[in-house]
Write a protein that binds this DNA or RNA. Structure first.
Length: 313
DNA sequence: AAGACGAAAGTGGTTGA
DNA sequence: TCAACAACTTTCGTCTT
């Protein structure tokens, strides 16, 4: 008896963890789970509706599938689809729930309602925007990139392309796509460095988003990396210009297909630096471009052959 | 001793049957 | 789903500066 009374005295707003009795419980925003901070117990998972369970792989499929469900209102939080815990104090078989547990149930109702208020979309976007700010800030990207990325991300959310992917990965992928579109010399690697995601995830998310939203991302020209690599290697304007020339000549000869743009940029810079007497070692250039010396050598050989460059030194 | 070179084997991702 | 494939990496031995 004394136990029951003590339980009721607990703040009404707080849930009690059935495992350890702690009231230190928080909501995991990514998964909408109620989690006990003491013992890690998941008290109630999947609190909100996640929308349709299907995934469409082309627009035709999407149209067909989308029409099969009931009308979904984008105007309402949760798209008008909600889960409610009813007030009857009976379990699924209609058996009355023990008085002892009714307090817990009522607290759950309250929490559930609160959490459901913000739709999963809104919460998803809020988290994503935070992540976006972080990336844009750390990579020192212009404001316009953030805005474009946010727009694309929202579009992706609207079309249910996010589910099954980490928000962070998708944001990173979108930022990468915008950089490519805008000709900003950031590699996937750069983005991986400053986030907690791995390259695989971002790459996968990037390809998926690109395909689904029909983003047309131009081929990354090696040229855009040249100023960046050159300045980090402290090479002169002259070398830069020469390297760009080499890259353009290579492009005109159709050498780019398939090859990584950073490798070509690095090799062109390496050659240009040699020509202008600002010699850098293959290793230095390779490190800057995040490729290996071997790759530099291979591109170097190809470029030399292709352009009929005279032997150096 | 450091850098450049290239062969050989291994890796992760794409493509096409 | 699997195998072939291209690009790139890792590793290592040899040659050059």
């Amino acid at each position: 008896m004394a136990d029951e009374r003590r339980e009721r005295k607990v703040d009404e707003n707080a849930l009690v963890c059935p495992e350890c009795g702690s009231t230190d419980i928080s909501v995991e925003p990514e998964t909408s789970e109620l989690i006990c901070n003491k013992c890690g117990n998941i008290i109630h998972e999947d609190l909100v509706d996640y929308g349709p369970e299907w995934r469409a792989f082309d627009s035709d499929q999407r149209n067909r599938r989308a029409r099969t469900g009931g009308p979904i209102s984008m105007m309402k939080p949760n798209k008008g689809l909600t889960t409610e815990i009813d007030l009857s104090n009976k379990d699924s078989r209609g058996v009355k729930i023990a008085v002892k547990n009714q307090a817990t149930l009522s607290r759950m109702r309250k929490w559930h309602k609160r959490i459901s208020m913000a739709s999963s979309h809104e919460r998803n976007i809020a988290t994503a925007l935070q992540e976006l700010e972080k990336i844009v800030d750390r990579l020192q990207l212009p404001r316009s990139v953030a805005e474009k990325a946010a727009y694309i991300y929202k579009e992706a959310v609207r079309r249910h392309l996010i589910r099954g992917r980490l928000i962070e990965s998708v944001v990173a992928a979108v930022v990468y796509a915008v950089c490519r579109k805008e000709g900003i010399p950031k590699t996937l690697e750069d983005i991986v460095q400053i986030t907690n995601t791995d390259k695989k995830d971002i790459g996968r998310a990037y390809r998926f988003i690109k395909r689904e939203l029909n983003l047309k991302v131009p081929f990354a020209s090696p040229e855009i990396y040249i100023p960046r690599f050159a300045s980090n290697l402290q090479l002169s304007e002259e070398v830069q210009e020469r390297a760009k020339e080499i890259v353009r000549a290579a492009m005109a000869n159709g050498m780019l297909s398939g090859r990584g743009p950073t490798g070509i940029a690095a090799a062109a810079l390496y050659i240009a630096a040699l020509e202008k007497g600002e010699r850098k070692t293959q290793k230095e250039v390779a490190e800057e471009a995040h490729v290996t010396e071997v790759t530099i050598r291979n591109r170097y050989r190809e470029l030399k052959e292709l352009l009929g460059l005279r032997d150096l030194e």
